[in-house]
């Protein structure tokens, strides 16, 4: 009997080991299968993303100037562009302008997006119909948005300015006034992109279980308290993702600045990518421009990492 038990136990041990071995083999096969599936996509991603980035970094180590052929692949002083950046006041100013633009546009777009999402989440057929209208600015080509605002901000052709004039009000031309030019860009950018954050937050709101709100109400929470302690924490992840998207996009702000102000007056609205564009395409300093771009990429990555570390991704406990 004992022998029989021993044999049974031994057999079951063997079966277990075999099972584990089969399981491990299956896991390994499954992992390999996943890798095989991913490989083409990773290769494509590497070719279209990684190689240009490596090329960008290499170019940033040269003084490449398109009008001087001897500057191609000249690595005699690879840190020169970065040393020049350290003492370039216009570059420093562009970073500061970028920081202001990003802060205000992301903040305003999150706040407005949240408020409008709360509004559109109400059960009303009129508001349901209005959702599409609110999305229009976001689906317009950025250059069209820039032209719309160029017309609105240009006193001799703007209906706003005609109205101001009719009332006898003297309003400065916002895009040529150093105190208002950046605000003018922020207003236009917010108008264009708050529907994006609104859409994401609205989707998040519609995922929120009604029981949370009902329970809070039973406990006597006011609508404000419900929003602050139930809705906002639930949307933490959505807000973070929307904010990150907008932050990264704000660093890419170009059409509005190119059409509305060309970075002016002076350099009041000259953000870093516009400065990089001027260096590359007005002066042909591709090496220097690449160094600016490398710094921008690094800054964006670091900033995104810090925000994710600080705020977290939200999630089920959110």
């Amino acid at each position: 009997m004992r022998n029989g038990c021993d044999l049974t136990a031994a057999a079951s041990d063997i079966a277990l080991v075999r099972g584990r071995s089969k399981g491990r083999s299956f896991d390994r096969t499954q992992r390999l299968f996943y890798w095989y599936c991913l490989l083409p996509a990773l290769l494509v991603l590497g070719v279209i993303t990684l190689l240009p980035t490596i090329y960008l970094i290499l170019v940033s180590l040269t003084p490449l100037d398109l009008t001087r052929p001897n500057t191609w692949w000249n690595f005699s002083n690879p840190t020169l562009n970065y040393e020049l950046l350290l003492e370039d006041r216009r570059f420093h100013n562009s970073m500061w302008v970028q920081a202001k633009l990003s802060f205000w546009t992301v903040l305003l777009q999150l706040v407005l997006g949240f408020l409008f999402a709360l509004l559109l989440n109400m059960r009303s057929s009129l508001l349901q119909a209005l959702r599409t209208v609110f999305l229009i600015p976001m689906v317009l080509p950025p250059i069209v948005v820039a032209i719309i605002w160029k017309v609105l901000y240009t006193p001799d052709i703007s209906p706003f300015y005609w109205a101001f004039k009719a009332f006898g009000w003297s309003v400065p031309a916002l895009i040529t006034d150093p105190n208002w030019a950046l605000t003018a860009i922020i207003i236009a950018d917010t108008w264009e992109w708050f529907p994006f954050t609104m859409l994401m937050i609205l989707a998040g709101l519609q995922m929120m279980p009604q029981e949370y709100v009902d329970a809070a109400r039973i406990d006597g929470a006011s609508p404000f308290q419900t929003t602050l302690f139930i809705t906002l924490p639930f949307l933490k992840g959505v807000l973070l993702v929307a904010g990150l998207f907008r932050l990264i996009d704000s660093i890419k702000a170009f059409p509005l600045i190119f059409i509305l102000t060309e970075g002016g007056p002076g350099t009041v609205t000259e953000v870093t990518n516009y400065y990089s564009f001027v260096q590359a395409f007005s002066f042909s300093f591709l090496g220097f421009s690449s160094a600016i771009t490398v710094v921008m990429v690094a800054a964006t990555l670091i900033l995104s990492w810090i925000i994710i570390r600080l705020v977290g991704w939200g999630g089920e406990d959110g």
């Binding site: 009008t67 040529t176 006034d177 150093p178 002016g264 007056p265 002076g266 350099t267 009041v268 001027v278 007005s282 002066f283």
Partner: peptide, 22 residues
């Protein structure tokens, strides 16, 4: 050949003076 570079600086400088920044 380098006029575009200096031209850009002149444009910016005149804008700064005309808007009272400098």
């Amino acid at each position: 050949p380098v006029f575009p570079q200096i031209g850009d600086k002149i444009n910016k400088a005149i804008e700064r003076v005309a808007t009272g920044q400098q």
